Amino acid sequence: MSAVFHRAIVREGGRVRVEPRPTPRPVSGEILIAPQTAGLCGTDLQMLRGLRGDPAPVIGHEGSALVAAVGPGVDPGLAPGTRVVVNPTHPGDPSFLLGHHVDGLLQERTLIPASAVAAGLVTPLPEPLAPDDLAALLEPLATVRYAYSVLETEDVRTLLVFGDGTVGHLAVRAAGRMLPPGVRTVHVHHTDAGRAWSAACAHRADVLLTAADGPKALRAAVGDGPVAVVLATPRDATLRCLETALRALPGDLVVDLLGGLPADAASPALPGVRLAAVRAANCGGLPAVPHVERAVTDAGTPVRLFGHRGVAGRHLREAAAELTAAPERYRDLVTHVAGLDEAARIMRHLVIHRDRTWQGRRLIKLAVRVAADRAAPTAAPA
């Protein structure tokens, strides 16, 4: 029998290109999926730029897929043809991190190991999203839903969001539907270009700022009352934005460390607090009641901190339900759509250029139509 291959976007030694890869056959407990739509996110770009040491040559952890084949012992609810979303973070097995430690979704076939299947990380979707490109927002919106499952029980008057990538925009847009009525939103952008893009959108925050506006502008924009801070920031910016919020807003704060953090992250504003440990205390939706750390700043102000690595299956289902119920609220965040070949060109461009534009338009979320180029793997030449 001839070997079977599929197409994949492969990164190797700073190069990004579409290559054939052997298509595995699932054995006991495993599932082979056919990714339909996959998103490119900020951590993917960090890996492409060599800023992270994750080993997987095929990245991509956001999107939806169809079950292509299953090994013996797989639940009948995950039969071939079932539309699914894969939770990329295993709460009990750190060796499984989709698109980071194991090959991800930017390929025509992806093997999900038995440990991830047994942990319930492959979740059926009740209906396809319309359009399918919205599937690129599923996992990032699920992280926002996780954050708001904590914040919805807080007495929050203002939501302050740092970060103008996909998650930052999703946090602003979902606030009006996932938090109690009347919560004001303030969105801090990295650049003037980011703020200008938001200003042109129908669904934007009540107040738009940039990091250059300074603490006085931030304090005036937030006003009085309890404030929730969502740090939807890349790893190299999270600590700086946290300290900005703590210094500018000395009142009642609850902070979500949603963005990445170095393992040794610490701040003189929060003496004795191991920030990475706070973020890692909630992983893959566990514990069921999220851990919230109570701390005191160096100025003597109480602050509550929480974070999360990954989400639970229910957060993914709730994100799918939200995208189905209000697609117009999120549709314009998918600014670019491409097949595998064009996606590889875009990724090569973004490795070199930091302006987040492609073909003259600001890139918020790239949705890769993995299944658009070819419907099935092909046999290799004899």
Results as ranks from 00 to 15, higher is better:
Asp206Trp: 02
Ala221Asn: 04
Gly225His: 01
His189Gln: 04
Trp197Cys: 07
Pro226Trp: 04
Leu218Phe: 04
Thr210Ala: 10
Ala199Val: 07
Trp197Phe: 13
Gly194Glu: 03
Leu208Gln: 13
Leu208Trp: 03
Ala200Cys: 07
Pro215Glu: 07
Ala212Phe: 07
His190Cys: 14
Ala196Gln: 11
Gly225Pro: 05
Val207Asp: 02
Asp224Cys: 08
Arg195Pro: 11
Val229Lys: 07
Gly223Asn: 01
Ala193Tyr: 03
Lys216Gly: 15
Val207Ser: 04
Gly225Met: 00
Ala221Cys: 07
Trp197Val: 07
His190Arg: 15
Arg195Asp: 02
Trp197Gln: 06
His187Val: 05
Lys216Trp: 11
Ala212Glu: 12
Ala228Asn: 05
Ala220Leu: 12
Gly223Ser: 04
His189Asn: 14
Ala200Pro: 09
His189Leu: 09
Leu208His: 08
Gly194Gln: 03
Arg204Ala: 13
Pro215Cys: 09
His189Pro: 12
Ala221Gly: 08
Gly223Phe: 01
His187Asn: 05
Lys216His: 15
Gly194Trp: 01
Ala220Arg: 09
His187Cys: 05
Val230Trp: 05
Ser198Pro: 11
Val229Asn: 08
Ala221Pro: 09
Ala202Ile: 11
Ala205Val: 06
Val229Tyr: 05
Val188Asn: 00
Arg204Pro: 09
Gly223Pro: 06
Pro215Ile: 11
Val230Asn: 11
Val207Ala: 03
Ser198Ile: 05
Asp224Lys: 05
Val227Lys: 01
Ala211Asn: 13
Ala193Lys: 05
Val230Pro: 12
Ala199His: 08
Thr210Glu: 03
Ala193Thr: 13
Asp206Thr: 08
Ala212Met: 06
Gly223Cys: 06
Asp224Pro: 15
